[in-house]
């Protein structure tokens, strides 16, 4: 019983297909930071056909993939993963979705020709294809409660334009970079325990405060609210380097 209580489980959706932008960094960061707090941390692979153990997952991670791979996970996501994922989230599990994963959790993705591919609608966002690709460093001022520092840093590389509905709020406002759609100044979304974003780099290693937010939120459903502080000087030095070097790109607000 205590053994299970001490366990921390990360569920990695399609690790072999949706891992294009060094997404393993997010997994490693979640696992190590849980381990350093004395938790028994493990990751389970939720590849095509797999749904076993999803109810035990504390944090799901859904990364980005190439078009070819994204097409290969599409049916499986709807047929095998949607139901248990919704159930786990309703039960307090946390989700971090980056880039392609972020888009697939929304209502739909609309191509340049106007064709709509429905997502699973876990978050109130919709995405449309754009012409220009947004590529480069991003600095976000986040409004997520109790995050210190209040900045998030990462790298974006996407042509989709994502717009938030009334049910989702932004993860933050872009100081540098394009964010959700290059127009309204928002980046990412937060809806209950689901966080979606275009930031990779990887995201969590240079934003340990966001990693801890996800871990804390997931554990709180099991009555474990406190996380012992860690020495984050190496992570925050890398975070500070990005703040220092990131300059607004030509043609941006």
């Amino acid at each position: 019983m205590t053994k299970k209580k001490n366990r921390f489980t990360v569920g990695w959706l399609y690790p072999d297909l949706m891992n294009i932008y060094g997404d393993r960094g997010n997994i490693l960061t979640l696992l190590k930071r849980a381990e350093w707090r004395g938790l028994d941390a493990r990751a389970i692979d939720l590849g095509r056909g797999a749904a076993h153990g999803m109810e035990d997952v504390d944090v799901f991670f859904f990364g980005g993939g190439q078009d070819r791979e994204q097409a290969l996970v599409y049916d499986d996501l709807i047929e095998i993963k949607q139901e248990p994922l919704e159930a786990a989230v309703a039960n307090g599990s946390v989700v971090l979705a980056v880039c392609g994963g972020y888009q697939l959790l929304g209502h739909y993705y609309q191509t340049a020709e106007g064709e709509r591919f429905p997502g699973i609608g876990l978050i109130d966002v919709r995405t449309e294809a754009g012409k220009k690709r947004f590529i480069g460093d991003v600095v976000v001022d986040t409004t997520l409660e109790d995050l210190k520092p209040t900045t998030l840093v990462g790298f974006e590389n996407h042509s989709g334009r994502t717009f938030l509905g009334a049910g989702a709020r932004a993860l933050g406002r872009v100081r540098v970079g394009s964010g959700n759609n290059g127009g309204d100044g928002t980046e990412g979304c937060v809806q209950g325990g689901v966080v979606g974003t275009y930031l990779h780099g990887s995201l969590l290693p240079k934003n340990p405060h966001l990693a801890d937010y996800l871990i804390r939120r997931a554990l709180s459903r099991r009555g474990m609210a406190e996380l012992a502080p860690l020495d984050d000087s190496i992570e925050l030095a890398a975070h500070a380097k990005i703040l220092e070097r990131a300059q607004p790109r030509a043609g941006e607000r």
């Binding site: 932008y21 060094g22 393993r24 960094g25 590529i135 790298f155 590389n157 990779h200 990887s202």
Partner: peptide, 9 residues
């Protein structure tokens, strides 16, 4: 490459 994410791979 201006994106260094790959070091995590």
């Amino acid at each position: 490459g201006t994106d260094v994410s790959w070091i995590w791979d």
